[in-house]
Every structure is written in C-alpha cells, then in structure tokens.
Design a protein around this nucleic acid. Sequence first.
DNA 1: CACGAGACCTGTTCGC
DNA 2: TGCGAACAGGTCTCGT
Length: 294
Amino acid sequence: MRRRLSLKMPELPEVETIVCSLRNPADRAFAEGQSLRERPGIVGRQVAGARLNWAKTLALPDWQQFQQEVTGQTVQAVTRRGKFVVIPMGTNTLLFHLRMSGDLRVEPQDAAEQKHDRLLLDFSDGTRLSFNDPRKFGRAWWATDVQSVLGDLGPEPLDEGLTGQEMYARWHRSSRAIKTLLLDQSLLAGVGNIYSDEALFLARIHPLTPGNCLTPVQAEALLAGVRQVLHEGIERNGASIDWVYRGGDFQNYFRVYQRTGEPCTVCGTPIERRVIGQRSSHFCPHCQSFTGCS
DNA sequence: CACGAGACCTGTTCGC
DNA sequence: TGCGAACAGGTCTCGT
C-alpha cells in the first residue's frame, strides 16, 4: 500500500541524502543539457552574500556578525554528524539542523525564492544555497568550535567501530522505555521516530521495555536493526534522487510505522499504535511481546 | 537527576 | 463544502 508523508523525513538517511547531493558530484550522472552552474555540488564555491528571512533560523551568532564573517568564505566540504549538516568554511563551520521540515536546495540565483525559504547563501558563481523550512523549527549555526554545537551527540550508528556491547552499556543505565532511549541523541546519534519503530520491530523488542531490562543479546540485535533500517532508508531515499526531485520512497517499505491496524508482515497480527514519550509508536504486539525483566 | 508536559510552527488530513 | 481538531519526521526548556 502506498502512503504519503506530507513533508520530507529528515532523520539520518534523509540528511545523508541531502549531504551527498550537496557534495561536488563529480562521480554522479547528470541530465543531458544540464549546465555546470546548475550542478548541486557546493564544495569550492565562495559566498558572495547572504539573506535571512526568519530571524530565529540563525541560532548563532547574530545576523550582522554572521553576514560579515560568512561573506568571502569558501565551502571546504559537506559532511554529516547525527542529523546535522556540517559545512566547514575557513576557520568557521556552518551547521544546519533540519528538525521536522527543513530542506537544503542548490539552484541558480535567478530562480524564484520559494515560500518558506529562511536562509539563503549566494555564491559568486551565480548559484545559491537555500534553506527552506515551513515549520520554522530548523536552525543554523556559524561556529568556531564545532563541539559547542555537536558536543552532546552520542556515537554514529553506522560507525563500524561501534559495538552492541557499547550500546548495551549506554541503554542499560536507564529505566526509561527503550523507544525513548533510541530517540535520545546523546546515547546514539541520528535515529528518529520512524527508524526507531522499524528497528525495534526488526529486533523483536517491545518499545516500552525499560533500558535496564534489555539483555546484551537484545542490545546487539537492536543495534543491528538500527543499522539495517538506516541502510535501507539511505538506499531508498537515494534511489529516486536526482537533485531536481528529491523524494525517496522508503515510506512504501515501512514494516510498522504508520501501519496501525494493518497486518504484521511476519505474523499477520494487527499493528498497534500508542503514544510513548509523547511520540507515536508502532509495533506488533505478537512479535514484540514484552519479555519481562529479570 | 530523571521525567513529563508544554512550547516552538505551519500544513495536511480527518471527522462531523 | 466548511470548519475545527488532531496530527506530523525533532529538540529545548521548565516544573515537579
């Protein structure tokens, strides 16, 4: 069954997809007739000016200082940390958090500004980076010390050095529901509401299981589940990406998320929805039965 | 300190 | 059709 999400889904895979599209895409195929200046990569481009349409979008510093310091800087790289987009430029770094509805586009400067464009950087080559964010939750930082913004983030789930043992130690310290712990960015960076539900389903763990009730085996399975759904998300989001239309189709492959009442793909039991930690949570009551706490 | 509720926002969908 | 309520991918702050 097809289901539509009204907006983008800026969890880790979506951010990863955007970051990839903002890198210099020397290794990507282009549509025929697409001119050089329309290519999305921004590495090496120099900022000629900036515009801010919603004051709160710029978290730090104040607008005047930002405008002064960013002008003339050159984009050195585009990377990701958790759900943050990280863009080193000279001695400072520009960071974005897309929150619920943010998006970043690259386009020619003569393209019409779009509704909800909050922060725009004009490059000297005639292109522009636009931060669009309908709900105004997104934020940008211009920081000398990147750690002042990213310092509290937990490890990267896709970092191969991260072990289930390490996550067991982190989750086991708390009695909060594992669903809530998965969303805690200081324990593990990048997992959001969709992928937490999907990962718990793959690991066959009930979302209300207290962290200190998890077994080492379950923690191992959960980290594996997180990695699997993130990889799937990155693949699906990337599948239909060509920078003109950036809309993945992972939403058509959800196993539990937004499938309330529909049959579990494994056992057929109707998927349940309930609110945990103020977030909607979806799970199979049969496959993810609560195993108790010893 | 841990936890839950409320705040921040706009747009879309649902139910009457 | 119209209209208000409910809901949405995230995180911070404040009160208990």
